[in-house]
Structure formats: structure tokens, C-alpha cells
Amino acid sequence: MLRRRKLMEAMFKAVGLCSLALAVGTLGLLFGALVVEGLERIDWQFLTSFPSRHAAQAGILPALVGSTLIMLVTSVVGIPLGVAAAIYLEEYARRTWVTELIEVTVTNLAGVPSIIFGLLALGLFVYIVGLGASILTAGLTLALLILPVVIVTTREAIRAIPVQIREAAYALGATKWQTVSHHVVPYSAAGILTGVILALSRAIGETAPIVTIGALTFIAFLPPAPVTAQPPYISFEWLMSPFTVMPIQMFAWVSRPGEDFASNAAAAGLLLVVMTLVMNGLAIYVRYRMRKRVAW
């Protein structure tokens, strides 16, 4: 009887390890498949060429530039909004129905499928506001998409600051904003940074909302440069430019039949996975360092 139970237990342990191995092994398998198919496609030509009908000459330059510019817009809009909202909810908000409503909508937005954000952007930014399928539209869409992630992680980081820190600041005559901006935010910066990196790593791989707003899958030019030769030297024309991004370029290649395009897709996928893994690794590292350095 006892031996049977021990045997059952050993069997369960084996099954448990196997299921975990399945989960983690998939990650390895996925990565391996991309490396085998795509690694040899990644070279200087691939990184600096425009898409082409000939798979061997195609490259991802416009997609790289597009992804970078969109991440820029997303960060500039999404991070301050998210951090400000989190500061309000943690430090200022009183328990009213408005606060309750804000919290419910944040939770709800976090669970909305990303393609619904695409429909929102298509209806609102593309047609009602009239921004078209531009870099600005895509950046704003992804900013809304990462908003709940930034809010939730920033709130967690702020909540970890002990209340005594705030009381000490008040005792010295600091106002609320002085307390928040001189103490609470700087001390929770590492936690906020972790959240921001995770949010951006999610945004960089998002495909569905960007497809929905009508991004092009084949683009043979770059957006206008942000720096010009004539005064005032800075141009924001690029904001309104058509674009493509890395995941969409990959999607376009996956959808085309033929072994050659599949290896292009794998190469783009490998770059994407490496980017997100590096960003996530960085976030995990920052969090780990932070845990070790807690001063209170």
C-alpha cells in the first residue's frame, strides 16, 4: 500500500517534470527551428536591403526603421501617460467611484485582445481623426496597448516604497508633488524601468493591431528623415509616412509560398525573438538587481 503510494508519487514527479519540459522545451525548439532556417540569411545585405520579389535579394531595412520609429512614438506617448496614471492611482486617488471606474477599465484593457485595439485605431485614428495608416497612428495604437502594462507594473513598484519615506518628506515640509517627484518616483525607478522594458518588448512584437490599421506589407522606401538640411533642421513629416514593421514583414514572408521566403521569415523571426528575449532578459536582470539592493 505504502509502496504503491510512493510509486504514484514518483510517477507524478516524472509527469510533472515532463510537462514543464514540454513548456520550456518548446521555447528551445522554436528558437532552434528559427536558427536552423534563418541564421544563414542574416547578413549585412539582409539588414540593409528593401523587400524584393526575389527572396535572396530581399531585406528588412524599412521594417527595422519602421519598428524603431514606432517604438519611439509609443515610448514618448505611452510611458509618461502610464506612469502618470499610476502615480495618480497610488498617491493621489481617493476611494471614489471615479477611481473605481479607472481601475476597472485598466484591468479590462489589459484583457482586451490586441486586434480590438487595431479596430479602435482604424475607426478613430485612421478615419475620424484622419491620420491615415501612418507611423503616428501605429505609435498611438501601441501606446494605448501598453498602457495597462505600464500602469500595473508602475503601481506595484510605487506600492513597494514604505509609507515612512513619504511621512519623512511631509515632516520636512515637502508638498505632495515634491514628495512624489523627489522621493517616490526615483526610488521606484528600477521597478518602473522593468515594467517599461516588458511593455515595449510586447509592443515590438505586436502584429494584429498594426495589420488592422492597414500597414503596408511591401514598402520600398524609407520615411522622410527627421533631420533636414534647411532650417529648422528638424522635420516631423516622418510621423505621417506609410510604414512597415518587423512582425508584419515576417507575416508577409510567411504567407508567401516557397522555401526561400520561409527562410527570410525565419531570419526576421530570429531577429524579433532575439530582440524580445534580450529586452526580457534585461528586465529580469534589473528586477534581480533591484531585489538585492532594497535599502529598507
Binding site: 514543464l20 513548456a23 520550456v24 518548446t26 521555447l27 525548439l29 522554436l30 527551428a33 528559427l34 532556417e37 516588458l198 518588448s201 510586447r202 515590438i204 512584437g205 505586436e206 502584429t207 494584429a208 512582425p247 508584419i248 515576417m250 507575416f251 510567411v254 520561409a262 521569415a265 525565419a266 523571426g269 524579433l272 525573438v273 524580445t276 528575449l277 526580457n280 532578459g281 529580469i284
Partner: peptide, 24 residues
């Protein structure tokens, strides 16, 4: 060790999973 690995699994872009489903 496992928990960060699972987080990474959740962070892989979905289009890459699409490639995986179709071609692997």
C-alpha cells in the same frame, strides 16, 4: 529558474508562433 523561462515563452511575438504552427 523555470519561472523566468516561462515568462520568456510568454513574451515571444505571436507572429513567430504563427510561423512555428505553419512550418514546424
Amino acid at each position: 529558474t523555470i519561472k523566468p523561462a516561462l515568462e520568456l515563452l510568454g513574451a515571444v511575438p505571436t507572429v513567430v508562433y504563427g510561423y512555428f504552427a505553419l512550418l514546424v
